[in-house]
């Protein structure tokens, strides 16, 4: 065998430190999802009133409830995708595609809503700074998710960080449809779009923090 390789193996093996057993990745993903969701709900409630009739609409309008639940499911599954991407070989293409399809199905509700909305569009409950709120509230979950996934070994760090940003951004974007006014155009432009921008922030952060060539 190549002597350079022997030397490398010797160097890697010498003074080998024990490592903690591999984390249960799905559990971590769901804890991050639940913690982030609770944080988003809490901070949104604390910093402004939610739409007064939102809960009644959830109970009385099945399509609105379905739209909201499809968002929750899409975000939860994409959280699993993101954390599984941190473990080599743990994320299957099929599961990643499943998450992507759920996300597209949820977001397509708002495109359909431009023509046929789940609720009658109304200015009731409009929050004046919802666009900034969505963006800023997403940053702490992004930071926590980014740190957690970086402690693993994502093979595609930039794409993985972009997905963390997407999930983190979509959480406040989804809750804003309860906390803010309902209108498909408003949701797409002032809730979903800033949420998508958080995905770019995640990708940019990973790009900046990527290991340079030659670093080990």
């Amino acid at each position: 065998m190549n002597s350079d390789r022997d030397d490398l193996i010797g160097a890697l093996s010498a003074g080998l430190q024990p490592v903690k057993p591999a984390p249960r990745i799905d559990r971590i993903a769901l804890l991050w999802f639940a913690g982030s969701a609770l944080y988003v709900i809490a901070v949104t409630q604390l910093l402004g009133p939610i739409r007064s009739n939102a809960l009644a609409q959830l109970a009385g309008e099945p399509r609105f409830l379905l739209e909201t639940l499809s968002g929750v499911l899409a975000i939860a599954v994409t959280s699993l995708v993101v954390f599984r991407a941190g473990i080599p070989g743990a994320l299957t293409r099929r599961f990643a595609a499943f998450g992507a399809v759920l996300m597209l199905v949820w977001l397509s509700n708002y495109i359909v809503g431009l023509v046929s909305p789940a609720l009658d569009p109304s200015m009731l409950g409009k929050r004046p700074h919802c666009v900034w709120e969505t963006f800023i509230y997403a940053l702490p979950p992004l930071a926590v998710g980014f740190v957690l996934v970086r402690r693993l070994y994502p093979l595609q760090p930039v794409q993985t960080a972009m997905c963390i940003g997407l999930v983190a951004g979509m959480m406040p974007a989804l809750y804003m449809q309860i906390a803010c006014m309902y209108g498909a155009g408003h949701i797409l432009l002032l809730h979903i779009l800033p949420g998508l921008l958080v995905a770019l922030v995640g990708a940019a952060t990973a790009w900046i923090c990527r290991p340079r060539q030659g670093e080990t």
Partner: peptide, 17 residues
Amino acid sequence: VQEILVAIHQARHTYDS
């Protein structure tokens, strides 16, 4: 091959038995 060995070393904490 050597890069891969280094990567395996860096990722060894992610192997789940």
